[in-house]
Amino acid sequence: MINKVIQDAQEAVKDIPSGAFLMMGGFGLSGIPENCISALLKRNINGLTIVSNNAGVDDFGIGLLLKKKMVKKMISSYVGENAEFERQLLSGELEVDLIPQGTLAERVRAGGAGIPAFFTPAGVGTEVAEGKEIREFDGKLYLMERWLRADFSLVKAWKGDTAGNLIFKGTARNFNPIMAAAGKICIAEVEELVPAGELDPNQIHTPGIYVQRIFEGKDYEKRIEQRTVSHS
């Protein structure tokens, strides 16, 4: 098996240049590449474009990269949890493309699957449709959306093996598998890294072909945004 293992997060992101086009997995703070974000913070780069469903919170996740002014543009579907984001956006320091979540997911999926464009009903009749081709299929209107592909995709999995196969846990899967496929170089950080052969091939969510670099992350905080409990 081809060995994809590298030392750590620092080595994983060392060649990401200023101006790079990145994807980062995660929904809210669940399933975000915490170790890679920390390592990026230590790099002296800027002008990044980041595709990520959300933009973290002020003091965690992508919010940290925003605070350090490393991000030129965000491509996201919902950014409501981040005051610094809103400030930079309203002041014009940050560019933002807001995209319907399903369209965002499908654009990423299409990028990884080699489909340059597709038609979706989401956004027809809204400002999302401005400047886009509209076509009628079987009596309903659809708009054309293009694929998204990244220089680097940064994903987080629960378990991985040395061949780059990944298994996710719970709803921390979200955008991670499709982003793995849509990055020219996919960097996967995992909570537990095992030798090839130890994961059940029947249970693999992301086949190793999509992953170029893998390492075992450490000190996962897994911060919770909305801690809701029942008392019964």
Binding site: F27, T171, I224, E225, V229
Partner: peptide, 20 residues
């Protein structure tokens, strides 16, 4: 339903980012 305190899992949230 929402989890009890000791069953909270940060890898299990709904679209509102609430633990479930």
């Amino acid at each position: 339903p929402f989890p009890t305190e000791y069953k909270i899992d940060p890898d299990l949230i709904n679209a509102g980012k609430q633990t479930i």
